[in-house]
Design a protein around this nucleic acid. Structure first.
Length: 960
RNA sequence: GCUCAGAUGGUGGAACUGGUAGACACGCAGGACUUAAAAUCCUGUUCCCGUUAAAGGAGUGCGGGUUCGAUUCCCGCUCUGAGUACCA
């Protein structure tokens, strides 16, 4: 029979499912290998050809590792909580679980027909209660923990309570919202329960606090920083504004340093690590305190000499402005201070004379949206508060300004401005006519600031004449001595906002008593998502869960006593999309466990993910949060590895490749029904028009299908070149509106899954982004037919011989055995596909149908094209399904050695002659033979060579 | 602006640590088979010059360098893509 891919693929997919061929065991003697894909959000659109790219690569790798004798865990699931299902529910009233279910069914069907070797017994769905029970459970562990800086790990909150009871706040070195509050053990005991809870909330790793959040009015919810791109929501592209709200947050900042150092120990792409480093944004510098001076107006007369703010307001104990700087060495160049318009001391620092200016400026800043503020980086603006601070090192009076280029959210929201060394400060100083003090001898500050670290300091008191390093050390030491500054590390990363005002997410297992959050009892997990009638926020602006009729908690004690009155309202917001995906790889280890999130045994066996394949768009979201949760779970000794994903590969994005037709424009400028082929558009006036890529083949438009494409084209006429209509091409995002979506289902029904799998790999390097282009899939399909033909005679009868293979055949086979092994280990699947084509071409030329060769070839190809290989494997007389546990053929380098070899010799770098030599010659003989060769002698022309270059025992170049 | 990645035929792309650039595939051209088409198979295909065959020259974004020898290493530049952006 000819190659009938449809029958073959259906047969084997069914076989694998029925026999659970790819089930992974948690107990075996084999070494483990965990291959993970980023699980998909099941969207309504289904899969397009870009989605399976990474899955195919990981599947090849997983199948290959099985052949190499590993017990491979290769699971799949769905990240099924999320916005689109909810938006759809709002529009249609359809419950999100219904759409989600339907979408999962589509995904499953599409995944199955590509022939992946997933262990479906371990499937997880983040939206199913037996999964999110454990997401809620981990939330509870976070709530019950604080970060101990001395131990550098998370600890139980009970330990903190114990410490407070015995020692008060003294001796606690923990990550906390408000480090200034101190109390004794007696104070603590005197606090009532409410006050104690309020204090503990400042330490908990997940906590509730009023914070500025990214509020998206269109979506009616807050978004995390990584979900906002350029002032718009990542999903939907709606505008995002800043708003103060009580919000759940995750204290990821406690882990900033560990998240940073951990990057050095994992095998991830460097660009991705770099993105995480930038996101964490560590800067090493110093904090410096500038004592607030009396305003000149108040330095005489009534109130003179009193530590009050210039406008008579209370400074609440703050007698200085604290700034963060990475260039403390430039402190003598400070000519003004700038604080953010939102800075808490602005009101207190504003003198009566400056009040109008400052108020006007603040109003103006507030009006500017976040987006304008970002776009407008050219204009210099600001206002003088009227107040001064004192330079702690030389007593200079320094004016305090406000300006929106200083961000309230970073550092202390205040900067010391050094116009000679910082360009923004320079522009500000020029604009407002403030002094610019040169502080380094080689500085050139004619036209712009010069941030050099070379040269010697000038105008800088005790560091004059020093270099950068010594100066920095000297300044830090001096500030430390004065108690006005110290070395400090600052991180850009903020705590992650954890609450979402949405319905379709995990309910937060928390109820409120006296406005403070308390955890529900563990035996009441999971806290099920309630049914509601509509998915919009309530009329009073509460999140959708506010619509639930019985959304309140009865603690166990009141349940026991059957007390009706003791019920407490549950939290109304739900968890963000990243909650469920921040630990899912552990669930796969023990997916059906209803006692624990995963058993200790399972975790100790599988440990971590050996290979993770997914897109780089998750760099600062999922991949960072996952590392954070993993480290937390490690601190609690619930998991065994510090980092969850040992090796990570980013598959490139598949872009769309749009085709265009060119409509002829008539003299009046109106579009006609005539279309001009791409090569001729310069000679006509035309306008481009997207055309469905599925009716274009190798840029040639199928004219009949085009006439059916839209009714208006039924009578279309064409101006052709060489009898064909050639379409234009452009690379764009894959989207329905651009008619460039290629559906894997179509390709599979035309060419089969094996062809699709190999073609996706053949397209180019896995990690490179590239436009999808179906041109060329024929080549892979032809290859598989050729491969099939190797096992058959001219009448398509299965015919293999038991003859002993000859040297040429063994050479072809072992070349491919070695190549595939090397390529898979290097993740360069595309060149392997080429090598298969070469091998099969060679064996076809040799008319080789020998069992010994073909059997091994089938195993080698099986990870790429599993269906056809399973079929041939059985035809070769092996038991069905056993190919997945076969052993990868052993490479024997002896077969690659040739009897005779030929290679080129260059003279002065130019190739002049080709030489053939017998391998029976000894190494030394080879060199002599080359020099004695007639062609070589002719080139040398009787002279002795100046130099002879030998590479791997061969003379490759002779310098005359 | 900063950080990172990249630039090789008509196209996708090969070339592992510097050693015959363009593997493999697509496309294109020619041929075989066929009444014809499709499918299949064979041959050619970096460019220039030339041709019966040859022989020669140039060539991996641009300019320089190191080297017997550079797509590969170094310096400078141009362009493309990605991330990030008043981060003090």
């Amino acid at each position: 029979m000819d190659y009938q891919f449809k029958d073959i693929e259906q047969k084997w997919q069914q076989f694998w499912a029925e026999h659970k061929t790819f089930r992974a065991e948690n107990t075996t003697n084999k070494p483990k290998y965990y291959v993970l894909d980023m699980f998909p959000y099941p969207s309504g659109a289904g899969l397009h050809v870009g989605h399976p790219l990474g899955y195919i690569a990981s599947d090849i790798f997983a199948r290959y590792k099985r052949l190499k004798g590993f017990n491979v865990l290769h699971p799949m699931g769905y990240d099924s909580f999320g916005l689109p299902a909810e938006q759809y529910a709002i529009q249609t009233g359809q419950h999100p679980s219904v759409t989600t279910e339907a979408n999962i069914a589509t995904y499953r069907r599409q995944l199955d027909q590509i022939g992946f070797s997933f262990d479906w017994d371990r499937e997880v769905r983040t939206s199913s209660a037996d999964y999110y029970k454990w997401t809620q459970w981990i939330f509870m562990q976070l709530f019950n923990s604080y970060y101990d800086k001395d131990a550098d790990k998370a600890q139980s909150i009970a330990k903190l309570v114990e410490h407070f009871e015995n020692n008060g706040s003294a001796g606690i070195n923990a990550v906390c919202d408000d480090e200034t509050l101190t109390f004794t053990a007696d104070d603590w005991k005197a606090f009532n329960k409410q006050e104690q809870q309020a204090e503990l909330l400042k330490y908990r790793l997940t906590y509730l606090r009023e914070s500025t959040v990214n509020w998206c009015p269109a979506l009616g919810t807050v978004l995390a920083n990584d979900e906002v791109k350029d002032g718009f929501s990542e999903r939907g592209g709606y505008p995002v504004e800043q708003k103060k709200m009580m919000q759940w947050s995750m204290r990821i900042t406690a882990y900033a340093q560990r998240l940073l150092t951990g990057l050095d120990h994992i095998d991830w792409p460097e660009p991705l690590k770099e993105m995480q480093r930038n996101w964490i944004g560590k800067s090493v510098g110093a904090s410096v305190r500038f004592p607030i001076s009396l305003s000149p107006a108040l330095s005489e007369g009534e109130g003179a000499g009193k530590k009050v703010s210039p406008n008579g307001g209370d400074l609440e104990g703050a007698h200085y402005i604290e700034v963060f700087t990475t260039r403390v060495d430039t402190v003598f160049g400070v000519s003004f201070l700038v604080i953010a318009p939102e800075h808490e001391l602005v009101a207190a620092l504003t003198t009566p004379g400056q009040k109008t200016d400052i108020d006007a400026y603040i109003t103006q800043t507030k009006k500017k949206s976040e987006l304008d503020r970002m776009a407008d980086t050219k204009t210099v603006s600001g206002a003088f508060t009227g107040s001064y601070v004192t330079n702690p090192l030389n007593g200079t009076q320094i004016p305090v300004w406000i300006a929106d280029y200083v961000l309230a959210g970073y550092g202390t929201g205040a900067v010391m401005a050094v116009p000679s060394g910082d360009q923004r400060d320079f522009l500000f100083a020029k604009h407002f006519n403030l002094p610019i003090i040169p502080i380094i001898d080689i500085q050139n500050i004619e036209a712009e600031a010069d941030p050099t670290k070379e040269g010697k300091y000038i105008n800088s008191d005790f560091i004059n004449g020093l270099g950068y390093k010594e100066a920095t050390a000297a300044v830090v030491a001096k500030l430390d001595e004065l108690g006005l500054g110290k070395a400090k590390v600052n991180f850009r990363m903020r705590d992650a906002i954890f609450g979402r005002q949405r319905y379709w997410g995990e309910p937060v297992p928390v109820y409120f008593k006296g406005n403070l959050p308390y955890l529900i009892e563990e035996q009441h997990l999971p806290l099920l998502l309630p049914e509601i009638d509509k998915y919009l926020p309530t009329e009073s602006g509460e999140p959708p869960l506010g619509r639930a009729t019985d959304w309140s908690y009865k603690p166990q004690e009141s349940r026991d006593k059957n007390q009706e009155e003791a019920t407490y309202a549950y939290e109304l917001s739900t968890m963000p999309g990243w909650a469920g995906s921040s630990w899912y790889w552990y669930r796969y280890m023990d997916a059906n466990n209803d006692k624990e999130f995963a058993s200790r045994e399972a975790i100790e066996y599988w440990k971590d993910v050996d290979l993770y394949i997914g897109g780089s768009e998750h760099a600062t979201g999922h991949l960072l949060y996952s590392r954070f949760w993993n480290k937390f779970l490690k601190d609690l000794d619930l998991v065994v590895e510090e980092e969850p994903f040992k090796k990570l590969i980013n598959q490139g994005m598949i872009q769309g490749r749009s085709n265009f037709v060119y409509r002829l424009i008539d003299d009046e400028g109106k579009g006609t029904n005539t279309f001009v082929s791409h090569g001729l558009i310069k000679e006509y006036k035309t306008s481009p028009l997207h055309v469905d890529v599925n009716i274009v083949e190798n840029e040639v438009l199928n004219l009949n299908k085009f006439k059916e494409f839209r009714s208006e084209f039924a009578n279309a006429e064409f101006i052709l070149e060489n009898g064909k209509y050639i379409c234009g091409v452009e690379v764009e995002k894959m989207s329905k509106s651009k008619f460039n979506v290629v559906n894997p289902d179509d390709l599979i029904s035309r060419y089969g899954a094996d062809t699709l799998r190999m073609y996706e790999m053949f397209l180019g390097p896995l990690e490179q982004s590239k436009p999808w282009n179906t041109n060329g899939i024929e080549g892979v399909f032809k290859f598989l037919r050729k491969f099939w033909r190797l096992f058959h005679d001219a009448e398509w009868n299965f015919t293999v011989s038991n003859e002993v293979p000859n040297k040429a055949e063994l050479k072809s086979l072992h070349k491919i055995i070695q190549k595939v092994e090397q390529d898979i280990e290097r993740f360069s699947f595309n060149t392997s596909v080429s090598s298969f084509m070469i091998a099969v071409n060679e064996l076809t030329d040799l008319k080789c149908n020998k069992r010994a060769i073909l059997q091994e070839l089938v195993i080698t190809l099986a990870p790429y094209a599993p269906h056809i290989c399973e079929e041939l494997w059985v035809m070769l007389g092996n038991p069905a399904g056993s190919i997945s546990t076969a052993a990868y053929p052993k490479f024997n380098p002896a077969y690659l050695v040739e009897d005779e070899f030929s290679y080129p010799i260059s003279f002065n770098g130019k190739v002049r002659t080709n030489i053939s030599l017998s391998l029976t010659l000894e190494q030394s003989d080879i060199e002599a033979a080359v020099l004695a060769n007639a062609d070589v002698q002719k080139q040398l022309n009787g002279k002795a060579p100046k130099k002879v270059i030998v590479v791997k025992g061969r003379i490759v170049n002779i310098v005359i």
